[in-house]
Nucleic acid binder design. Structure first.
Lengths: 115, 115
DNA sequence: TTGACATATTCCCATTCAAGCATATATTGA
DNA sequence: TCAATATATGCTTGAATGGGAATATGTCAA
């Protein structure tokens, strides 16, 4: 299977931390691009590119107002991810397994780092 | 910000469709690598690589039994993703209401300004 | 010990990705 | 019309990705 494009796959689209922060920032209400630039403190072209990706993934929508573009999060689109994680919900609550798994993962990571 | 490594970031780790299927397959109970190979119908080395990534991301744990390795999903690790999507939950089902409310707020503001 | 089986690792390749930088497009106001 | 503002697009680069194929490691059975 080829790599899934961030422009079409929601899971790939939200794999980028800046894009996750954008989605949270725009969830409460629409914001202009420049506000997002200020919020993220990264270069404007980068923001526009992330917004372009989020838009083609269906995660945000735009509304032009004068020379500004007001973006807002399409929160409904995130139901897909929420639904997917919900399939694991029935297994939560077993603390012992969780601690054990996390400990093993840590041992794993340090082994990987030291070799 | 540099690309987040799939080996350490859960969101990046689950961006790959094969890995999501593995997590679901292993959620109900542990399975040997060969069973996953059969389930996904892809080459065994690819499966081992995906499992390696999932393991260092803390999403699965392993238990050796003879010459087999039994993997299981660490479902607790997916709480992170579930919690993140939950922050959008408050906006679901009332997107129309939200737009309407925001429009009314604007009308209110302009009325306030003109009186 | 040898051979079969189960899994992991290595190397190569084509693609994707995100950032940096420069530039283009569009809109507003003087 | 011209300049300033707001945003988008194009190009390049270095790093990471996933698959394919070959091979290495580890374990059991005869």
């Amino acid at each position: 299977m080829a790599r899934t494009a961030a422009t079409t796959d929601i899971f790939t689209a939200i794999a980028e931390p800046h894009r996750r922060r954008i989605l949270q920032f725009l969830a409460a209400g629409e914001q202009a691009v420049n506000d997002i630039v200020t919020f993220l403190a990264i270069a404007q072209p980068q923001v526009s590119k992330h917004l372009s990706i989020l838009k083609s993934a269906g995660l945000v929508s735009v509304r032009p107002v004068g020379r500004q573009r007001l973006y807002r999060t399409n929160t409904e689109a995130l139901k897909t991810v929420h639904a997917w994680t919900s399939t694991f919900e029935q297994y939560w609550g077993n603390q012992l397994n969780a601690i054990k798994a996390s400990a093993e993962a840590q041992v794993d990571a340090s082994e990987r780092a030291s070799h």
